[in-house]
């Protein structure tokens, strides 16, 4: 930490309780999310497009369009209620307490200013220090995210940098005011695999180095495994399974998680064999069916799944899944895995 912080309150970095986000009064994008991000923890929120993962992430910084959306539930950052914050408090929260990195740095960075100037502006905005001092801090940030020849790169415009370099610059900008919580929205999706792995490792290093609490949104299970301690799987606005990365990937208990793992091309039995798919498509969020939102596509669904919400079942220490048939689902997954390793 560069500057002393007035007392760090105990408790989790972020606590989300019963979050519901509705757009235009009709589209329920997030439908009752409970999630706790412990201090120094890294959680990956995974799901397909429209599962509500980015909306959940944005809600933490109140970035969803306020006039078009209705937000219910509670969001606490370091114990303080984000929903109750006024303009001032919110400005202080954004950047200083919680920072965010986006998928496309070219859209997130301002094209007409050099990257260095944008970082310096952010630091001075929050801390009221001199330009020279701010520049030194910006340079330090560039070194921290391992940008080669950082002095020169500070004076580069975003378009003069390569994709990987821009993403590093955006991470530097996000970390400029030493936030405690880092939110990352698909930060490596637009990158080549060879660059993606570098950024994933950088995020992992920074997290340990700075003691950051990280919430990482991705649709890629592999990327989630590389950076996260815990994984929360979202479907149609709900967290359907949450546990440690090991628990979720090696011992999944929700049929949707199992479907995601099975549909990966590397999990196929043999070349030329068919991939196992999840039939159908996600539900219309404006007309949610009653009961479990995954029931219409689930290989284990029965009448009670379509009638009411499934219970949240403990599948192990710190591992939960929202499903009536977690045991059967887990057994089916393990049986197939055994078959695969025999073959």
């Amino acid at each position: 930490m560069n500057e002393p912080r007035t007392k760090t309150p105990a408790g989790p970095a972020v606590a989300i309780q019963g979050l519901k986000v509705t757009f235009g009064g009709r589209v329920r994008a997030v439908d009752g999310v409970d999630l706790t991000l412990g201090r120094g923890q890294a959680i990956a929120l995974i799901g397909e497009s429209g599962s509500g993962k980015s909306v959940t992430l944005r809600a933490i910084m109140r970035l969803n369009p306020e006039r078009k959306s209705t937000i219910e539930g509670r969001i606490l950052v370091s114990g303080r209620d984000v929903m109750a914050m006024g303009r001032r408090e919110l400005t202080a929260l954004r950047g200083r307490e919680v920072a965010m990195i986006f998928q496309e740095p070219l859209l997130a960075l301002d094209p007409v200013y050099t990257v260095g100037r944008q970082i310096i502006e952010a630091i001075r905005q929050h801390e009221g220090i001199g330009a020279a001092e701010a520049r030194a801090r910006a340079l330090q940030q560039f070194e921290r995210v391992r940008i080669p020849s950082p002095e020169r790169r500070l004076d580069a415009y975003p378009h003069e940098m390569s994709g990987g370099m821009r993403q590093r610059a955006m991470i530097a900008l996000a970390l400029a005011c030493n936030p405690k919580v880092l939110l990352a929205d698909e930060p490596t999706t637009a990158l080549d695999a060879t660059v993606q792995i570098q950024i994933l490792l950088l995020l992992r290093d920074l997290q340990t180095e700075l003691g950051l609490s990280t919430l990482f949104v991705t649709h890629d299970l592999g990327a989630a495994v590389e950076v996260a301690d815990r994984i929360a799987v979202m479907y149609a606005g709900r967290i359907v399974e949450e546990g440690s990365a090991r628990q979720v990937v090696l011992n999944p208990h929700h049929p949707y998680t199992i479907g995601l793992l099975r549909s990966r091309a590397d999990g196929a039995l043999a070349k030329g064999s068919r991939l196992q798919t999840i039939p159908g498509s996600p539900p219309d969020l404006a007309n949610r069916p009653p009961g479990c939102p995954f029931a219409p596509r689930c290989f284990l669904a029965e009448d009670r799944c379509r009638a009411g919400d499934p219970p949240v079942v403990d599948a192990g220490p710190g591992h939960r899944a929202a499903c009536w048939k977690t045991d059967e689902a887990a057994r089916s997954f393990q049986a197939q895995r055994a078959e695969l390793s025999d073959a």
Partner: peptide, 8 residues
Amino acid sequence: SMPSMDPD
């Protein structure tokens, strides 16, 4: 460079 699918 492919992300590992093994948490261990």
